[in-house]
Amino acid sequence: MNSIQRIALMLTIIGAINWGLLANFQIDLISSIFGGRNDELAKIIYGLIGAAGLVNLGLFFKQGEEYIVESEVNKT
């Protein structure tokens, strides 16, 4: 997983937490921090979270990669 995918995953998790707070407690954390839903900065953050979701959609369809575990390397 490269750094762009990690950042996208982090933003997607933030978005999911925001939706959970909104559904359960009627708290929109992103709009509270960035000045309301109609503020330009909040719209940019919402857009970044949406783009991050699209980047992570690519992870969903990615074929399994083989990773070498460090303990397996030391066995040889």
Rank of each mutant, 00 (worst) to 15 (best):
L9Q: 10
G36K: 02
G15A: 12
I17V: 15
Q63Y: 09
S32F: 02
I49D: 00
R6V: 15
L11I: 06
K62W: 04
R37Q: 04
K75G: 04
E70A: 14
S32A: 13
G47A: 12
E70S: 08
L54Q: 01
I33E: 05
G35Q: 01
M10T: 10
L57D: 08
A42K: 02
M10N: 08
I7K: 11
I68F: 14
L41R: 10
T12S: 14
A8P: 09
I30C: 02
S71T: 09
L22W: 11
I49T: 03
L41C: 02
M1H: 11
A8I: 04
L54K: 04
F25E: 13
I68Y: 07
Y67L: 11
L59K: 07
G50P: 04
S71V: 09
L57R: 14
E65T: 12
L57G: 11
Q63M: 07
F34W: 03
S31Y: 04
R6Y: 06
S32M: 12
K43F: 05
E65V: 10
D28S: 08
N18R: 15
Q5E: 15
E66M: 05
S32L: 09
E70H: 09
L57S: 08
I49N: 00
Y67V: 07
L11S: 05
A52H: 01
I45V: 15
I33W: 04
K43I: 03
G47W: 08
Q63S: 12
I44W: 11
L22N: 14
V73E: 13
L11K: 10
N56V: 02
I14W: 02
F34V: 04
E65Q: 11
I33D: 01
Q26P: 03
A8V: 09
T76Y: 12
E65D: 13
A8C: 11
N74C: 02
L57F: 13
G53T: 05
T76V: 13
I13C: 06
V69R: 15
M1Q: 10
L57Q: 14
K75C: 05
A23P: 07
S32W: 00
G36H: 03
W19F: 12
F34A: 00
F25P: 05
L41S: 06
S71G: 02
E40V: 09
I44H: 05
E70M: 09
E66C: 02
L48A: 11
I27Y: 06
N74E: 10
L9G: 03
I45D: 05
F60Q: 10
I27M: 09
I4F: 07
E40H: 05
I13N: 14
I27L: 10
A51I: 15
R6C: 07
L41P: 00
V55T: 05
I13L: 10
G64V: 11
I68D: 07
A8T: 08
N56D: 00
V73N: 04
I4K: 13
E40D: 09
K75D: 06
I33P: 01
I13A: 07
G15R: 05
N24Q: 10
V73K: 15
V69G: 04
I17E: 11
E65G: 07
G36I: 02
V55F: 11
N56C: 13
A16T: 14
N2V: 13
F34T: 03
D39C: 05
N74A: 15
